[in-house]
């Protein structure tokens, strides 16, 4: 299958379908609702129902061109068969299987192998050609098992609360932010939420991940954990005392994240796969040809080539933060 990589996204030219296009296109598959993937409106949008509703919430679009594809559901498009397959990442994330003239192509989008705290678990899909991400594609990245991460998040919160300090979790607007609120709620720890993380909590709740939270209020943080986007940190620090910061991220696998994120406590949990997860996903796909996008693409492709796999780095866009 012909695949064109450019800063505008990935384009399957024979069937006229874009994957996570950066600019408006006629037809596009959106793997998940993060802003670097679900960026602009398109004529026809294929995505899971959950991704579509997050995408709509973010961009304020109408549903005219929406073509919801639930997990395991298929659609015919310009002579190809499109199937959405579960991907562990944020709520609604999916891989896309494209079957065209007897060839099977899988685009993972952003993905990990371990189940997320909220959302479905990855099902690896056998294919000939795999497009996989490599945000953490170096063998220095080892992340916690999901249950361990859940325990560590709750553990840090409890320990701080016991010591009369306020645990603060820095998390992304969509994904880890809601996961942490959910994990803390499930552990019975009161949570205050600050900033844009709030917007998506109802969608997570509707998807079956209960959350108990209150809007952040500088006067009453005592006795609650705080979940906040990193951008609001300065404001938070100016208004409250005895804060102790935890950084929940893939980058937290490296000690230098303490300085980078200005957090004393590191919890290496990500919505991306660690090195071993990425390797496992490549292996279990059985793909003979692998294109690597995002992050350490060059290095990860080299590592795959060493194992005899026809792998190359495909330049899509500059590496960026999770």
């Amino acid at each position: 299958m012909r695949i064109e990589y450019s800063p505008r996204g990935i384009f399957l030219s024979e069937i006229g379908l874009w994957l996570d296009a950066q600019e408006p296109q006629e037809a596009c598959w959106i793997s998940h609702a993060h802003s670097d993937h679900a960026r602009s409106p398109h004529g026809t949008v294929f995505a899971t129902p959950a991704t579509l509703s997050l995408y709509r919430t973010r961009l304020g679009l109408d549903e005219a061109g929406f073509r919801p594809l639930d997990y395991h559901e298929c659609a015919e498009f310009h002579g190809a068969r499109l199937t959405a397959c579960p991907a562990s990442h944020i709520l609604g994330a999916a891989q896309l299987l494209v079957e065209h003239r007897g060839e099977r192509l899988v685009y993972t989008g952003d993905i990990k192998l371990r189940p997320p705290l909220c959302g479905c678990a990855t099902e690896t899909v056998a294919c000939d050609h795999l497009i996989i991400e490599s945000t953490f594609g170096l063998p220095i990245f080892h992340f916690l098992e999901t249950e361990q991460a859940r325990r560590r998040i709750a553990g840090f919160a409890r320990e701080c609360l016991d010591e009369q300090t306020t645990p603060v979790f820095l998390g992304s607007t969509l994904g880890r932010g809601q996961e942490m609120v959910h994990a803390l709620s499930e552990a019975g720890i009161p949570v205050s939420v600050h900033g844009a993380i709030v917007h998506y909590l109802p969608l997570y709740e509707a998807a079956g991940y209960p959350v108990q939270w209150e809007p952040y209020d500088a006067e009453s943080t005592k006795g609650t954990a705080v979940v906040v986007t990193p951008g609001l940190r300065d404001q938070l620090e100016a208004s409250a005392r005895n804060l102790r910061f935890a950084y929940v991220s893939g980058w937290a696998a490296l000690a230098n994240a303490r300085l980078g994120a200005r957090a004393e406590h590191l919890i290496p949990y990500s919505d991306h796969g660690d090195f071993q997860e990425l390797i496992s996903m490549v292996q279990s796909s059985g793909a003979r040809r692998v294109d690597v996008v995002h992050g350490y693409a060059e290095a990860f492709a080299r590592i795959l080539r060493q194992t005899g796999c026809d792998a190359r780095a495909a330049g899509v866009r500059a590496p960026e933060d999770e």
């Binding site: 170096l138 063998p139 080892h142 696998a253 000690a255 290095a299 060493q306």
Partner: peptide, 28 residues
């Protein structure tokens, strides 16, 4: 390690500390 020296060097650079890099790379 099975990886090429350049990969290992990149890992050292990203980690920024030899002991930590060695511990992480030897996992498994």
């Amino acid at each position: 390690l099975p990886w090429e020296p350049e990969i290992v060097r990149l890992c050292f650079r990203e980690v920024g500390d030899a002991g930590e890099a060695i511990g992480l790379l030897l996992e498994g």
